[in-house]
Amino acid sequence: MAQVFAYLNHKNGVLEDAAMELINAAKAISSEPATAIVCGSGIDAVATAAAAIFPKVIKVDNAALDYPNAEVVRKALVNVIPAGSVVLFAHNTFSMDCAPGLSVKLNASFVADIVGIDGVDGSTLKVVRQEFGGVVSTHVGVDMSAGAVVAVRPGTFAPDESKAAGGAVTAADAGDLSAKRKFIEIVAPEAGDVDITKADILVSIGRGIEDEENIQLAMDLKEAIGNAAEVSCSRPIVDAKWLEASRQVGTSGCTVKPKVYMACGISGSFQHLGGIKGGLLIAINKNPNAPIFQVANVGIVANIVEFLPALTEKIEEMK
């Protein structure tokens, strides 16, 4: 049975939630104890936290790993991980940077963004993935005979809350960490004129709004609802420069927790949903099979270009 390793993301001395979920992904692959890997500089506290979840922890402590530059981390991992292993990542912007190249260097198979593990059959790992932003699902067979690198979508497995692993930490040498890419700095997003995180009601629009001029329909609805409301959006609206970046909800935008989130013409990609942390989710979409209806509390099948003005009119009438 292949040995399972899990690369754990951490920030400011704290393990990321998704890291704690990987132990349960590891258990779905092998009954052998999994090994966590933490890389960084001055990371004793993180390694100790990891040992509460994983039976074994490898700590790679090196000044060159102070910021997790994927090209540098990859070199450390190639040095530490034996051939034929299964390596787990949380699927995020770091894994997208590091994991595909790592799989090549380890000569292992690679599969990204899995949303389930359906068992192991000999040396084949059977995983569940989604395509087209969650519209269809697939079973995928991953040949683990020479090892595999697997990136698991956050939220797929429950985090280990028991923290009772009582694991042991061993230090490993990172080897040569020279790289042709140097980390400079993190630049925070510019503050916008609007703060969508403060709104009780978000009228959130996606690509289903179809045209730039239709943005006004959402603005009108927001005006009708009043002070507690604001207009937010999915990423394609920001990419098209129809609305400012500070209105984007999702993993690469804002995290919001309004009382009511009205997703209008938004399909429900995990990157978008990742920014919605609570409240009543109302989805309005013309496609009855849109993935968002699987997670919404209330669903309406409608063309938003017609529905939003009708709703606005009714709310105005009630005043």
Binding site: S109, V128, V140, Q294
Partner: peptide, 26 residues
């Protein structure tokens, strides 16, 4: 080494409470 086995429709969870009727009723 990575092969699609099949496509499937995932079992729907609870799903949303769908509002139905005329636009006015909805």
């Amino acid at each position: 080494k990575v092969k699609k086995i099949d496509y499937f429709v995932p079992e729907k969870g609870e799903g949303a409470e769908m509002l139905e009727g005329s636009t006015e009723e909805i």
